[in-house]
Design a binder for these strands. Structure first.
Length: 850
RNA sequence: GGGCGAUUAGCUCAGCUGGCUAGAGCACCUCGUUUACACCGAGGGGGUCGGGGGUUCGAGUCCCUCAUCGCCCACCA
């Protein structure tokens, strides 16, 4: 074996990943075992590069899967890629624009196939990045969201809902982006506070007996007004209800109606009603049976429904012109500045227009009801728990889901419209045909595609070959759904609804939501701000293991967190520590290939074994509960502080090869889920190891002698105190005298670790007595030297006095002694007597000095 | 307008069901070439856990309230 001084990740990572892959270690084994563990990866956009959120997500997922794999469970991490309908569409449109073209230059089929190729070009890139991050995904089960089985599932979900009457087609208001030319679900609209105006416009009564002043933020929509509404109890307008006003500009007579919805306190208390361009007004039109006049088209321009002079204007120009005409006719009473919420397209920022359009909708009421019921019975656990409550609240207020999208890139909706009766639609999967003939009637294909979230709602079981696949039987429900907290509503909620609806079972047992990684200043990362941290850059710079440990360090479910490179650096250093620990152990063991069971002899051996046992228990429990950061922290300190700083140092005096071997092996196993590459790289170098670390069993640690472990523990306190005192008094190799067999037995150890001079037994103590352990140990120093330390002694004396007062007060409180658990009271008594002993020692020394 | 979260060392954060004489990493200070590691070793300084009130023998941890910051949802024209 020949390990270099520092660990160089790039020398190993590619080779190690190939080693795992070539040995098919990612494909689940032990299918017959009682337990299985599965995670299906939230498929990243096949077209894009992985971002830091994926880096975090994969780290969490891969740690969990590697742990369960080592526990001997059939473990699956299923990789995938998302065609990401709208997201990719946006990218491709930019790509077209760069070539001076647009979507209007091609047919839908042409676009679809062009984008297919465009995405395929990036596939290699994408898979390379998965490998660089060390994700132990089973490539044989790689699934693309446009794979046949996923499309098939989308169609069968659609058909089932159609048959169950949950799918309906209706002309309703749709959130429409006029730039991208497509509608969105409510949840995809991004609301932003914007400055605007509230315009007060005079609407004269048709009979000339007066006027009603309405207040609106969108004067141009008055071209589509069909009524004016007031509150039924509003005395100001009581006599107006039932009359009509002559709508300015359009010169139509429209009724004044009464409706509870109107807020008397807002504006003038009179609202103009434009059902085709406002959700509230639409709802009111349903209640009062009002017509709907669309005056803004899907192109964002004023339609022919409007008066001649406005036709073809965009919304902004139309607004300006309407206002000018109103001013000219003296119909504008005043203008008020206000701040209100306006919906925007989350991609391009265009103001979303609510427009009338025929779309496919899912009646979500029964689906949400089932989901809420399931959530309330705690069948699915959440990290963090608070998200479940939020999800229930969201589902309780859910509106029907518009699943039609007017883009070319996506799964075509398998529905055809009758050429004879526009209201008649049939389900048919022959979507590659523009029209089909059924029973002599010609039907035309719906040109729209599904909302991507609709097909991805079935991801947990469609990937596992629902309903008949072996994987479905073994791995469903998925053990952990790990994803970003930001897609709780659009994705997680729908997977639960659709999973229950389609399979009759929960889609996953646990939801783990990670927060957003922000830049180092807590700002959201975005390309436009130029503050994006590329995970692959960090992998190349610090190593894959360092990146993943750095990124999960401090991770707590659901919390957003700034990227902290110092954690990655710390993790890189930790990797190097592991490397050098291995070098040291290998050097001691040399070619001793005899495999031997751990055979603890010295106090240090017992101490190390008991620490290792405790660490293993804690780490196992934390991993079971997805407390990854805590597990990592525990391991880090065990490896660095207990094993390297104490045990290895002690081993320099008298090495126990069996314990060195056993503990290094155990450490590599425990660290493997967190740092897969370096642990495997070391494992492959070890003379005594066999097989592959990735599939070796999770460690079990034998019991050690508690009293012996305690003896070493005391030694660590004594050594630390000697170091402290030496430093404080600037001593070089102080001599030690004592009356302790433990010290006698471990004199060499103390000499080396505490850098002391001679160590000798004594009848009579002198110098400075140590206070950290029960053994009688003195630093053999003259009183003159001790005097220099007296100030510190007084400080320590004061501390002890305070402590003692504290403990005594507690123990003299009868309520405390009566109510607190016995163990707590005993501990306090122990602490008190310890503190008193320390104080006594300190006071003796001070007395002598004075 | 509703809902949720956060506020602990200079920075980023742990602290799960109340027992803490409050922790970690980084940063900072001092010393150190002891043959695994300077991506290191040893030692050290630094916090009245946002303010106020309450429950309790005991509160960073539970409750109320205020303040500040953040996120999400919502149809105030």
């Amino acid at each position: 074996m020949n390990l270099s001084k520092t660990y160089t990740p790039s020398d190993h990572e590619t080779k190690i990943y190939e080693l795992w892959e070539n040995n098919h270690t990612f494909t689940p084994k032990n299918r017959g075992s009682k337990k299985s563990f599965s995670i299906v990866i939230p498929p990243p956009n096949a077209n894009g590069n992985l971002h830091i959120g994926h880096g975090l997500g994969f780290a969490v997922e891969d740690i969990a899967v590697r742990y369960h794999r080592m526990k001997g469970e059939a473990s699956l991490l299923l990789p995938g890629a998302d065609h990401a309908g709208f997201e990719t569409w946006v990218v491709y449109e930019k790509h077209l624009a760069a070539q001076g073209k647009s979507r209007f230059d091609f047919t839908r089929e042409e676009l679809y196939s062009q984008i297919w190729d465009f995405v395929a070009q990036n596939k290699d890139n994408y898979e390379t990045q998965f490998r660089q991050l060390g994700a132990s995904v089973d490539w044989t089960r790689y699934t693309y969201t446009l794979d046949k089985k996923i499309v098939k599932q989308a169609y069968s979900s659609f058909k089932k809902m159609w048959d169950d009457g949950l799918i309906y087609r209706a002309q309703k208001l749709v959130n429409f982006c006029t730039y991208h030319g497509t509608g969105f679900a409510d949840i995809e609209v991004s609301h932003k506070e914007s400055k605007g105006h509230l315009w007060h416009i005079r609407y004269p009564l048709s009979d000339g007996s007066g006027e009603v002043v309405v207040a609106t933020t969108r004067p141009e929509t008055m071209l589509g007004d069909v009524a004016v509404a007031v509150h039924p109890k509003d005395k100001r307008y009581a006599t107006f209800v039932g009359k009509t006003v002559r709508l300015p500009l359009s010169n139509r007579d429209i009724p004044i109606i009464a409706d509870d919805f109107v807020d008397m306190k807002f504006g003038t208390g009179a609202v103009k009603i434009t059902p085709a361009h406002d959700q509230n007004d639409y709802d009111m039109s349903e209640r009062h049976d009002l017509p709907r006049i669309s005056i803004i088209g899907h192109d964002g321009l004023i339609t022919h429904e409007a008066p001649e002079e406005f036709i073809g204007l965009d919304v902004v120009s139309a607004r300006e012109k309407v206002v000018n005409v109103l001013i000219a006719q003296n119909l504008l009473e005043r203008r008020e500045e206000i701040v209100h919420n306006v919906g925007h397209c989350y991609k391009c920022g265009t103001v979303i227009e609510p427009l009338l359009r025929e779309q496919w909708f899912i009646d979500t009421t029964p689906l949400a009801k089932e989901a809420i019921k399931t959530l309330k019975t705690n069948e699915i656990s959440f990290h963090p728990t608070v998200k479940k409550k939020q999800l229930i609240t969201y589902l309780e207020g859910l509106r029907d889901w518009n699943i039609s999208r007017q883009i070319a890139w996506g799964i075509p909706i398998p529905a055809f419209q009758s050429s004879q009766d526009a209201s008649k639609w049939i389900f048919d999967e022959r979507v590659t045909k523009e029209s089909i003939t059924v029973d002599g009637v010609v039907y035309h294909r719906d040109p729209d595609v599904f909302d991507t979230w609709f097909s991805s709602s079935s991801w947990p079981y469609a990937t596992l070959d629902y309903p008949d696949g072996k994987d479905f039987a073994t791995f469903y429900p998925v053990s952990v759904m790990e994803t970003g907290a930001d897609i709780l509503y659009p994705w997680v909620s729908r997977m639960i609804m659709l999973g229950l609806y389609n399979t009759g079972a929960i889609p996953f047992e646990t939801v783990y939501l990670h927060g957003l990684i922000q830049d180092e200043h807590g700002q959201k990362m975005s390309k436009s701000k130029g503050n994006v941290v590329n995970p692959i850059d960090k992998v190349l710079k610090f190593g894959s293991d360092a990146f993943r440990m750095g990124i999960i360090s401090g991770e707590s479910a659901g919390n957003n967190r700034p990227y902290d490179e110092s954690k990655v650096v710390g993790a890189r250093n930790f990797c190097n520590k592991l490397w050098n620990i291995a070098r040291f152990v290998q050097e001691k063991i040399e070619d001793d290939l005899a495999s031997s069971e751990p055979n603890p002899i010295s106090d240090a051996d017992h101490w190390l074994l008991s620490k290792l046992q405790h660490t293993t228990e804690v780490v196992t429990k934390d991993l079971d509960n997805m407390r990854l950061s805590e597990a990592y922290d525990t391991l880090y300190h065990f490896v660095w502080d207990d094993f390297a700083s104490w045990y290895l140092e002690a081993s320099k005096i008298s090495p126990n090869l069996s314990i060195l071997k056993f503990s290094l092996s155990s450490i590599l196993k425990l660290c493997h889920p967190f740092a897969p590459f370096i642990t495997e790289a070391i494992w492959q170098e070890l003379a005594w190891s066999d097989e592959l670390l990735i599939i070796s069993p999770w460690p079990t640690i034998p019991d050690a002698s508690k009293p012996k472990a305690k003896k070493f523990e005391d030694l660590t306190y004594i050594i630390t105190e000697i170091r402290q005192l030496s430093k404080a008094m600037n001593l070089s190799k102080p001599n030690i005298i004592h009356q302790s067999a433990t010290i006698e037995d471990n004199a060499d150890l103390i000499t080396n670790l505490a850098r002391t001079g001679s160590i000798a037994l004594t009848d009579q103590g002198r110098g400075l007595k140590l206070t950290s352990a029960k053994q009688h140990v003195w630093l053999d120093i003259p009183d003159e030297v001790l005097t220099s330390y007296s100030k510190k002694l007084v400080e320590r004396q004061q501390e002890q006095i305070k402590l003692i007062a504290n403990f005594e007060a507690r123990l003299s409180n009868k309520s405390y002694v009566d109510h607190a658990p016995q163990k707590i009271v005993d501990d306090t008594k122990q602490s008190l007597s310890d503190a008193k002993a320390v104080l006594e020692t300190l006071e003796d020394e001070l007395k002598r000095l004075s």
